[in-house]
Nucleic acid binder design. Structure first.
Ligand SMILES: [Zn+2]
Ligand SMILES: [Zn+2]
Ligand SMILES: [Zn+2]
Ligand SMILES: [Zn+2]
Lengths: 143, 143
DNA sequence: CTTGACCTTAGAGTCAACTCTAAGCTTATA
DNA sequence: TATAAGCTTAGAGTTGACTCTAAGGTCAAG
């Protein structure tokens, strides 16, 4: 049985974060001391690790809540549900990458166009490009 | 002289956003009607377009505030200042791309490993992978 | 028995960039 | 003149994932 600070040290998640995850229904301590201190057993710890791993893979806390509800009753869920979640997340990640790569290109072009020296910015081609709006619009995600 | 709704239509930025930008010192209407309505002249409009272009390139509003302060007095600023800003932004964008590509890979591997069918998730290899934590940590940015 | 580290809670604050609301003027059209 | 559309302001709400605070109870070591 681990106290919250011990689980925190072991998992790398702060005690604050662990309590926050609990408040959001992701994890919980299956027992409490008389004084109300949280005590985590092995299953609790595994659940925390699952959350941590899923978070590292890029899933949002909401996604993780769904994955957890599958995890506790795998019988009632299908592989398809799991891949749907994963595929959806992958699409989001891909969209974000596209957006950022577009910015990357723009920024690189701007950077290449400018001398970067100590001269006055009166002739700066980056400022000119921004002034003239000659930059293709990025598809900025709205969410 | 444009009223805020006209500038909004022309720029594609909502009137709310234009007022928000003004509150944050990015833009402003150089004159007001007797009743207090904002009126934007050509220079105002160009400044708004500059903001819009810089935002499209990926700069934060804070970055843009700096770019604008250079823009109004190019004599007192150097190309280097401009490239520093741009390079810094590029680094941020690159870091974010790396992080997302790492997630992308992880998600793709997970997806490839799962049958995605209507079978019960008891044997799901995505769930297994998340359970076993066999996923390399992404370098998640903390900011 | 005291000190200090650790634990509890509800709830507030943070960040970025909006987005919206309420309450009340103003202006254009029918 | 009445109605609707448009403008003003200060200020609150949104999103996601924390992060921190205040006020107080608990526990082990010296
Ligand atoms: Zn130069
Ligand atoms: Zn330059
Ligand atoms: Zn399967
Ligand atoms: Zn599966």
């Amino acid at each position: 049985m681990l106290k919250i600070s011990e689980l925190s040290a072991q998992s790398g998640l702060s005690a604050h974060t662990l309590r926050f995850y609990e408040k959001n229904g992701l994890i919980n301590a299956s027992s409490r001391s008389e004084a109300g201190y949280r005590y985590y057993n092995e299953a609790d710890v595994r659940r925390v690790e699952f959350v941590k791993t899923a978070r590292n893979a890029g899933f949002s806390l909401e996604d993780i809540a769904q994955l957890l509800s599958i995890r506790v009753d795998k019988q009632s869920h299908s592989c398809q549900e799991v891949t749907d979640l994963t595929r959806h997340k992958l699409h989001e990640v891909n969209a974000k990458i596209d957006e950022l790569q577009s910015m990357q290109q723009t920024l690189q072009i701007l950077l290449d166009s400018c001398c970067g020296g100590p001269e006055k910015a009166t002739h700066c081609s980056i400022m000119e490009a921004l002034d003239e709006g000659e930059i293709r619009d990025q598809a900025r995600s709205k969410k």
